[in-house]
Nucleic acid binder design. Sequence first.
DNA 1: ATGAAAGCGCTAACAA
DNA 2: TTGTTAGCGCTTTCAT
Lengths: 357, 357
Amino acid sequence: MYYTGEMAATLMEIARRTGLSKSSVSQCLRSDGPKSHLFRPETRERVRRIAAELGYRPNSAARATAYGRTGSIALLMSINPIRSSLFEGLLCGLHDELHRNDMQLAIARMPDEELSDDQRLPKILRDWCCDGMIINYTDAIPAPMKAIIREHQIPAIWINSKQEHDCVRPDDFGAAQQIAQRLIELGHRRIAFSDFSHGMTYADPHYSVIDRRGGYERALADAGLQPEVWASTDDERIPGDQRMAYATAKLSARDRPTAVIGYSQNDLFPVHAGALAAGLTVGRDLSIATFAPAPYTHLGPPFATCILPEEEMGRSAVEMLMQKIADPAGLLPARVLKMHFNPGGTCVPPSGDSTED
Amino acid sequence: MYYTGEMAATLMEIARRTGLSKSSVSQCLRSDGPKSHLFRPETRERVRRIAAELGYRPNSAARATAYGRTGSIALLMSINPIRSSLFEGLLCGLHDELHRNDMQLAIARMPDEELSDDQRLPKILRDWCCDGMIINYTDAIPAPMKAIIREHQIPAIWINSKQEHDCVRPDDFGAAQQIAQRLIELGHRRIAFSDFSHGMTYADPHYSVIDRRGGYERALADAGLQPEVWASTDDERIPGDQRMAYATAKLSARDRPTAVIGYSQNDLFPVHAGALAAGLTVGRDLSIATFAPAPYTHLGPPFATCILPEEEMGRSAVEMLMQKIADPAGLLPARVLKMHFNPGGTCVPPSGDSTED
DNA sequence: ATGAAAGCGCTAACAA
DNA sequence: TTGTTAGCGCTTTCAT
């Protein structure tokens, strides 16, 4: 039943050794207990010491049974590839805030196939084993999942997704608009937007695919400029090994763009290489900018970057979830997080050699 | 206590409605229960139906209290930046195998500072709340963590780290050796190894930093070739914005290497760009290869890559952990996972224009 | 300042 | 084939 031959220490054992009762020991051991301050400091100290000697570890399952809260929340994700880069910071933020609340994080990934079969539901949905959920499903949200959460009124916060309520997400539209405006202010007239990975080839893309491009187009429209989008379409796909050549061609043209905004860093690498091939130096002859958790720094001057507020999103989500757990009925307004623009070293005025309007 | 005004359904409630006893209901509901097959199919069906109607979700805390197992395992990580790329596949592997065992994954990240202060230990170490741990600490392993795991004899498997026992890791040495041998077989005589990020600047680097370079050097030595390492040293740092220039210089020399092995993809981007700047075409004039979860495909032909067996590592770790939970005393021999080499499109014979020995 | 007792929801050994 | 009983380790209420 336990790891060792000897049983693990319990409250009962400590009670025996200290001559106190089980409930007294329980109180003494918890600094937050409703009556813990009623005990003599010396008593509490004695209890602590014995507990330490015995290597006592509270059985959190038993506590959860009695207390009615598990002390853990779950992060739900699709089993389909997530942008793992988004993960590191998010985890930090979640951890930070959870730790402040002395709670744990469980991770659950859901293959869509299994959700149809009730028997094979992930434990996390089948059992009652967490106090709330943070949902990182951005699209193609499995119906059974939503149903279960609704029926059982499980406190849940959506992240990285556009929802009216109980939701946190970065302001992708605003960020893209901001980048484009900065470039326009610097004097750029031809600004391209590259999104090789998505383009219009997905029926139901992540909202950021729409919004980043949307913000860019809005900024250009407001300034009376023509947008130029480099993206795969249903008619014209741009596979990985052709992107660099594509960029080279575009950047070799007489009316080439003087700046390129990439949907992500991955959309900028081929642009960077294409610029080199076209004889241009990024950060001098060509400005580039993108969206990422942190500026890319291994390829010359740091890429100008709108910083994805991953940590903040994690912290906000937990914060909101705590409120939701306290008051499951209340609807929380969506939080839209501003992104900070780090100009890095790749955002400069257009150089003289390019065609000015 | 519960989410809704109405209490959540319990075994007791189902017992009441079916006219059965609590324990009968418990057995009927679990297909794996020791006595579940003793009940009439019609009884079991009735119980199932009522449970479903009531929206019954087993309280896994209560179950854990009674059964003595939590049904979850924890992944321990440092709070310091991990290679997040390593994360996606690992998570898949862990999830796969855990799901087969109907278990859950908890994530815990440990800031080193807090570990000194006993009061602020992460819940995961302070409480008894998982059946075992998978440890992703590769270096600078916090002493209190090790102590707790040892004292409480918590079943634990180390991943991504060199340990004698209870450990799974990729064969970085062998993989590097394999890459180098392939290049040598192709006719390359000058093969460089680039590790801009680490080099010799860290006192206690991840074992792969040593082993990848080591495997490379061994292969070259065996073939009687001179190694050429591009790495930061204590005397000569190569910051991010100088790497490309560094590579350009090296690749412009008359006795330039005809192939470069990068410690990671990030070490290859500057090389790729440097090659362009030096007028070389990667995959024709220059071969490159590296180690990664998957070949990089957004920059011309896919990078030749030794595939990090993340999923397999995750699965193996869980598998071993299950054994360890069953028999905590037994020592499991370390598993060293072979990597598969995917030649992609950047591994070709040296072209004629380079200096042949 | 401390203890006794009841109960959380579940499992398992033993009866019937 | 089903019920009874006794826990699991903890928290909380109510006495003292």
